[in-house]
């Protein structure tokens, strides 16, 4: 099977957030930029699929940062076969989707895995847009998956703890949720082998995509509204509990 996986080079969920002085952007160049949490599930699912169905895994990313070490260690060292790095500074999500779709089509992938959401902007937009540009089936927030020929059965995590088991046809974009698999670390042999695996650098022009952008503009970044300072209630368990309950009833008025 010809398997694709899309990853973003971005700070992970534990990164410390620093806002640029004028609130126009984020100043996080010194933060670890790697393959963020949900994309790691996508990488692992691609490898599991390769394990079960044979074939190859191609990883796609759109970035102007030096992606080399993250892609080699985070994907190719885990048994990925090839990388396509699209070196464009595309901030509009639909542009990113168009770039990825063109590269995916060129490689002839039958299934593409993505993380359910990015850990920075967190807009949840890329994967559905990618499915639309490709004209493929979309399954979002998948926690269980089995592929059989050109059909698949997936369990998706919806709102309020509700899950649905769904059946659909490949080709498909499958977004990966926490719980789908356990991510692995690469071993030494994998890291060594990854050094010689092909990494193709392409541009929008190579892919025949024109970046038009500007559908949205983002700014006015600020820290979240601060919660009023809290209070530690001292004393033995029984006394502290009584005081807490009194405060919850008389001061906070929530009991």
């Amino acid at each position: 099977m010809n398997i694709g996986v899309c990853v973003k080079i971005a700070p992970d969920t534990n990164a410390r957030v620093k806002i640029a002085g004028d609130g126009s952007g984020f100043d996080m160049a010194d933060q670890v930029h790697g393959i963020p949490d949900y994309d790691e599930y996508a990488v692992e699912e691609a490898m599991k699929t390769k394990g079960a169905h044979k074939g190859s895994v191609t990883v796609f990313t759109v970035t102007t940062q030096k992606a080399d070490k993250y892609i080699r260690k985070g994907v190719l060292a885990l048994d990925g076969d090839k990388a396509v790095v699209i070196g464009e500074d595309a901030s509009d999500t639909l542009d990113v989707a168009r770039l990825l779709a063109a590269a995916i089509q060129k490689e002839g992938c039958e299934v593409v895995f993505t993380g359910k959401v990015s850990t920075d902007g967190g807009s949840h937009q890329l994967s559905p847009m990618l499915a639309e540009v490709l004209g493929w089936t979309l399954v979002s927030k998948v926690v269980e998956l089995s592929i059989d020929g050109d059909t698949f059965t997936a369990t998706r995590a919806m709102d309020a703890g509700i899950k649905q088991v769904v059946k659909g046809k490949l080709p498909a974009v499958i977004t990966c949720e926490d719980g789908l698999n356990k991510v692995r670390l690469p071993n030494m042999r994998g890291i060594m082998k990854a050094k010689r695996k092909p990494m193709e650098m392409v541009s929008a022009a190579d892919l025949g995509v024109s970046i038009d952008g500007g559908r949205t503009a983002e700014g006015s970044f600020a820290p979240p509204p601060k919660r009023p300072a809290g209070r530690i209630i001292e004393g033995e368990a029984a006394d502290a509990a009584r005081e807490l309950v009194r405060l919850l009833r008389d001061e906070a008025k929530v009991l």
Binding site: T13, G23, G122, T216, A217, G219, F221, P223, P224
Partner: peptide
């Protein structure tokens, strides 16, 4: 809306 899972807020202007 939120960025970084609620560790920052910002504004999106939709131009379309």
């Amino acid at each position: 809306r939120d960025w970084f899972a609620g560790r920052a807020q910002g504004q999106v202007t939709v131009n379309t």
